[in-house]
């Protein structure tokens, strides 16, 4: 069997080669050989795969899934912070993609269009998750004594640091978190983010600016409390 290849026709995301992002672009294992070959064929563009899918072939769509499923999953995961929900979002995104393939505008980049579907679903899921959590846990949490009051003044451990970051991300407004994830974790530029979130470039920049500020404020405060 051919080993997993890296996605050979990089979108702007992949061209950057931000450290650690290769694993988000590798093809999944266990693909049928013809799907593997199609997905790994740099000469076959995403648009061509869309065209062939619309002609009723299944392998080209499987190849599109193979090219984008990892990135879609990880973006959803970083927005949601939960693997199970991210999986659902990713699956639903491909279902929606499949149903709306005939609306694909060949003049535009495929990944922008597809990531917009992913982000819409992920942000929706995040909001639902939060409102569910808010109604079920917040009252309870408010009644619990703050464990950290008894904690020693020792420097916080790495795990705690990381936990703090996720707590801060969980507090961050969905629209800031979306930009932060796309830019600071996935390395997209604001020009790429804007069409994905259907906002202007200026708004994308402002949200990034504000998102970083808010993130840092919460993070500083969290560290001070620890």
């Amino acid at each position: 069997m051919i080993p997993n290849q890296s996605f050979p026709t990089p979108g702007p995301l992949d061209a950057r080669g931000a450290p650690g992002t290769e694993r988000w672009t590798a093809l999944p294992g266990g693909l049928p050989s013809q799907v593997q070959a199609l997905a790994g064929d740099g000469g076959v563009s995403d648009a061509e795969l869309v065209r062939r899918s619309l002609a009723g072939q299944q392998d080209p769509f499987a190849a599109l899934v193979a090219r984008y499923q990892r990135r879609a999953f990880w973006i959803a995961f970083h927005v949601l912070g939960r693997a199970e929900e991210a999986r659902d979002v990713c699956q639903e995104a491909f279902v929606r993609l499949y149903r709306s393939l005939d609306r694909y505008d060949y003049a535009r980049s495929f990944y922008t269009w597809f990531y917009r579907i992913v982000m819409n679903l992920a942000i929706d899921a995040l909001r639902k998750l939060r409102s569910a959590r808010a109604s079920s846990l917040d009252d309870l949490v408010a009644m619990l004594p703050d464990e950290r009051e008894d904690a020693a003044q020792a420097p916080i451990e790495r795990d705690e640091q990381n936990a703090l970051v996720w707590q801060v991300l969980d507090k961050l407004d969905a629209k800031f978190r979306a930009v932060l994830v796309l830019r600071d974790i996935h390395g997209l530029s604001c020009r790429e983010i804007a069409p994905i979130l259907k906002i202007t470039h200026a708004t994308a920049r402002w949200r990034l600016h504000r998102g970083r500020q808010v993130f840092r404020e919460h993070w500083d405060r969290g560290q001070g409390e620890a």
């Binding site: 790495r158 640091q161 990381n162 703090l164 970051v165 600071d184 974790i185 970083r212 993130f215 500083d220």
Partner: peptide, 8 residues
Amino acid sequence: AGRALRDA
């Protein structure tokens, strides 16, 4: 803060 985000 940015580094902490990426590490976490």
